[in-house]
């Protein structure tokens, strides 16, 4: 049994599962990263994922197009990012509390809207929502391991992988990224240097919301093909952990998300060979805590 498991873990199917599980965590972690580097970490990303998942399903069912559904998810994410900025900058509410508040609002708000639209509080099964496509690479199929790992991945999985260097370049190599980091590093100094702090943080939160929206769309239009209340299941929080572990860099967030995704995929497989599923389900939530402690201890030591 263990021998087979080890073979499986080295195989392409397992790699494919890791990438699939990592996708929403990675997208949300990149969103959290952008907000964190601007000094306004987006704790509300968990709720934004919920809203994105909901908007994707409703948007694609209403328009008949999966891509318009995705656009709806991005729009919902941007709007909620802007709402968070409104709470923090205009109403001067606490950043962390507002983020938590956004999560609570989205948890009940999505169920309410689902009920208003379908008369069902449980899931969106009655809506004819669409699913975003997977990308088949026929040539890669002939290559062992890689073919199974990358040959049939979801389009948003590819998008999330592509987003890692893009976010890195945005943060480190553009004027906008420079301003954003300046604001996050020292808002007063940036303000004196002529950077508009609130406007930059607004842009960061809106962008972060867009990533959260896409992450949510993956859940309801890729992972599964429907929306249920609480579909994000704490993945937004796992993403924040991944971002913190990643030390503020896009590549770091990618590696952390991959580790956490692998933990989740492994937990699913270990359930399959008869280990108690409840205990295995704790793994994706305990690994980030351990990693956070290691990260914090190293930073303090070094």
């Amino acid at each position: 049994m263990w021998h087979e498991l080890l073979l499986h873990l080295g195989g392409g199917a397992f790699l494919a599962a890791v990438l699939r599980v990592t996708t929403p965590i990675l997208l949300a972690a990149l969103g959290a990263l952008i907000s964190d580097r601007a000094g306004v970490i987006n704790i509300g990303i968990e709720g934004i994922m919920l809203a994105g998942a909901f908007a994707g399903v409703v948007g694609s069912a209403a328009t008949g197009s999966a891509w318009l559904g995705l656009a709806g998810a991005i729009l919902a994410g941007c709007a909620l990012g802007a709402a968070l900025s409104f709470a923090v900058h205009t109403l001067k509410a606490d950043l962390v509390l507002s983020g938590i508040d956004l999560n609570l609002a989205c948890a009940s708000g999505t169920v309410l809207l689902l009920y208003a639209l379908t008369g069902d509080k449980g899931m969106s099964g009655s809506l004819a929502s669409k699913v975003l496509p997977t990308i088949d690479l026929p040539l890669l199929d002939r290559v062992p391991v890689l073919g199974a790992a990358f040959g049939h991945q979801h389009v948003l999985t590819w998008a999330s992988l592509l987003a890692v260097p893009l976010v890195s370049v945005l943060l480190l190599r553009t004027r906008f990224g420079l301003r954003l980091r300046a604001v996050g590093e020292n808002a007063e100094a940036a303000a004196i240097a002529g950077v508009r702090v609130a406007r930059t943080q607004f842009a960061a939160l809106v962008l972060s919301g867009a990533f959260g929206g896409v992450a949510g769309a993956f859940l309801s239009m890729g992972y599964v093909s429907w929306f249920t209340g609480g579909i994000s299941a704490g993945r937004g929080f796992i993403a924040i952990a991944a971002e913190v572990m990643g030390g503020g860099m896009a590549a770091g967030a990618f590696l952390s998300a991959l580790v956490l995704g692998a933990a989740e995929a492994l937990a699913t497989d270990l359930q399959g060979i008869g280990l108690p599923s409840e205990l295995m389900q704790t793994v994706p939530y305990i690994v980030p805590v351990i990693a956070l402690v290691l990260h914090a201890a190293r930073r303090r030591g070094g």
């Binding site: 704790i43 704490g234 924040i240």
Partner: peptide, 19 residues
């Protein structure tokens, strides 16, 4: 260790659920 209590408590809520 200086690890953020916010993030680790959010994670442990779910760990506590499944435990």
């Amino acid at each position: 260790f200086g690890a953020s209590e916010l993030v680790s408590s959010l994670m442990l809520n779910y760990a506590a659920l499944f435990l």
